[in-house]
Amino acid sequence: MLNAIDAIRIFSGDFQETKTFFVEAVGFEIGFEDEGVCVFDLAGTKLILEEVDLSEPEAAGMVGRFTGVSFATDDIKSTYKELSAKGVHFEGKPETEEWGGAMAHFKDPAGNVFTLVQYPPQN
């Protein structure tokens, strides 16, 4: 029986730059690192950064795409301001969605797109 999502893998052709981005700009801590792989432990889920060789056609298609990965925050406006000040590139300011929450998309140095999300208050 499946219990939970354990890990999400993302890929980069410039491993060091992308790793530095997640540590210095986003504030993630490294749980494990080896040659070409870095694991960030995030409250029950791992984000695994893997280096790929962009000269290989199969690998090139794995980098610089919408990931579908969302990071939750309780205060999207302040998180957006803090991450923007650290050099995180957002595609736009946080926007309130018709379902009551707010979202903003950002890219890592490899061009992978992530979502910052604030869920509406529970009644």
Rank of each mutant, 00 (worst) to 15 (best):
S70A: 15
T18N: 04
P57A: 13
T18C: 12
T20W: 01
A59G: 02
D74K: 14
G100D: 00
R65N: 09
G68H: 10
F106I: 08
G61H: 09
F22I: 05
P109C: 10
F32A: 12
P94Q: 08
I30D: 00
P57K: 08
L116R: 06
D41M: 10
F11D: 00
A85K: 13
F28M: 13
F22V: 05
G87P: 05
A4G: 07
A102G: 06
I8K: 03
K46G: 04
V37I: 15
Y119S: 11
T45A: 15
G68E: 04
E58V: 13
A4N: 12
T96I: 08
G101L: 11
I48Q: 03
Q118V: 13
R65Q: 10
K86I: 01
L116H: 03
F66M: 14
S55D: 10
I48N: 02
I5S: 09
G13Y: 05
E56F: 10
E56N: 12
P109M: 11
V117P: 00
R65Y: 07
V69G: 03
A25M: 04
E91Y: 09
D34I: 14
F28K: 07
F21N: 01
M103R: 08
E33H: 07
P57S: 09
E29H: 11
G31K: 06
Q122W: 04
E35R: 13
E24W: 05
L83K: 03
F90Y: 01
R65T: 07
E50F: 11
D6G: 11
E29S: 15
G61Y: 06
V88C: 03
F11Y: 15
M103F: 04
V69D: 00
T18W: 05
T96A: 10
V117I: 15
I30Y: 01
Q16C: 05
M103N: 03
G36P: 04
V117S: 08
M103P: 00
R9M: 09
T96C: 02
E17L: 12
V39N: 02
K93F: 05
Y119Q: 10
I5K: 07
N3E: 12
M1A: 14
F71L: 15
D53C: 09
G36T: 05
E98K: 10
I8P: 00
F15G: 07
S84C: 05
T18F: 05
D74C: 07
V63G: 03
D34H: 12
G68D: 06
K81Q: 07
L2G: 06
I8G: 03
K19P: 01
S84K: 14
K77I: 10
G13W: 05
I76H: 03
I10C: 12
A25T: 04
V26R: 04
I76M: 10
E35S: 13
L49H: 01
G101H: 08
G44S: 08
G27K: 14
E50P: 01
N3K: 15
K93Q: 09
K107E: 06
D53G: 08
A104P: 02
S78G: 01
G68M: 13
E56I: 15
M62I: 02
M1H: 09
G61C: 06
I30T: 14
